[in-house]
Simulated assay, not measured.
Amino acid sequence: MILVTGATGPVGREVARLLCGKRPLRLLARDPGRVRVTGPGVETVRADYADRASLDAALRGVDAALLVTNRVTEPDDARFVRAARDAGVRHVVKLSMLAVTEPAADDLITRTQCRNEDVIRESGLAWTFLRARTFMSNTLSWAPGIRTEGVVRALYGTSRVACVDPRDIAAVAVRALTEPGRHEGRAYGLSGPEAISAADQTAQLAQILGRPLRFEELTRSEAEEQLLRRHPRPVAEAFLASAERQRAGAKATVLPTVRHLTGRPARTFRDWAADHAAAFA
């Protein structure tokens, strides 16, 4: 049995879709009503990392698990690992981030992911880390501005990032979850096939949508104000620090891991945008 957490997010949902009908599968969600993957051998359970009883039930009979966490103020990874170890889980595949390998990255989110990796590494469980670069799907946050104004607003619009399609992360996760003995103790850095700027992404979206779009550069204070509307200050400051590292070139490196592990090239942003054009239309 494989357990997939984060089953309503871009990576977990795609892992579930790829495994549906091929392996016995249990999908964990705080709100099972939001899970969209169903099929033979697929079970959806309600659970929360802070509820040990629900974790115990979700992990019963599980051999391998995809672990996705995103609450930086909660010890969700430690809670999950304790329950997984007690349940006899063999292998945890953890969705992490490439920033943990950057010496200059010392923001709250990166420190949290470093601690999470340490917790898993020290747990005694077999592990695989998927250290992903920025998700291409993050640009979905631009959709309201594109639909209503034809405008994309972002900070440091000419800085480049080798963003990655969540579907490619999921393809690597499936390999790690279903090929015992090949991926344990490995940390995989995952990027897209090119480094691209927000301004270039805007231009590509305009071509795909067949309508003019305008890119507007945010000032740092404008970006900070927007972030603080949605996040606590330490999280907003972490995003701003990440943007500064991107401006310095820390996120432009292209890695060959997706091709090496899946046998096909990583998808480009244009590929991703064409497949998700309806979200911006």
Results as ranks from 00 to 15, higher is better:
V11D: 14
L240W: 10
P103M: 04
C163Y: 10
A203R: 15
N138F: 13
G185Y: 04
L205G: 09
D107Q: 12
L240K: 07
A64C: 06
T178L: 00
E117I: 09
E217I: 09
T69D: 04
G249S: 12
I196P: 05
V100D: 06
I2Q: 05
P103E: 02
A279P: 01
L205W: 09
V119F: 01
D63M: 00
E102S: 07
P232A: 10
A29W: 04
A58F: 10
L66C: 02
R186Y: 01
L55C: 06
F135N: 06
P144L: 05
R13I: 00
A104N: 02
I196V: 15
T134G: 03
P10I: 03
P40Y: 03
E179H: 10
S221I: 08
T73E: 13
A7C: 11
E225R: 12
P256S: 02
S54I: 04
A64H: 08
S141M: 10
V93M: 05
L227R: 03
R60K: 14
Y49M: 11
L155R: 11
L98N: 11
G181E: 01
I109L: 14
F80L: 06
P40C: 00
T101G: 01
A65C: 09
T110N: 03
S54Q: 02
L27T: 03
F215G: 02
E225H: 10
W272N: 00
R133H: 12
I120A: 13
H260T: 06
D165G: 09
T5R: 02
A236S: 08
R267P: 04
R267K: 12
V100W: 09
V151I: 15
V152H: 08
P144W: 06
D31L: 02
R85K: 15
R23E: 15
S242D: 12
C114H: 02
Q226H: 04
T262R: 06
V81S: 01
R220M: 02
R229T: 10
R90F: 05
T128K: 09
E184I: 03
Q226V: 06
A278S: 11
W272P: 00
R23G: 00
L18D: 07
R214E: 15
P193T: 09
A154G: 14
W272F: 13
D271S: 03
T257Q: 14
R79E: 05
Q113C: 03
A99I: 01
A57N: 06
T202G: 04
G88W: 10
A266L: 09
T110Y: 02
V161E: 14
L3C: 13
Q204V: 11
T73A: 10
T8F: 14
T268F: 05
D77L: 08
G210Q: 11
R233K: 13
M97V: 14
R175V: 08
I146S: 04
L98A: 11
F269N: 02
D76W: 02
L125M: 14
M97P: 00
E224L: 07
S141D: 14
I120S: 14
V119D: 02
L108S: 00
I109T: 15
A170T: 01
L227Q: 04
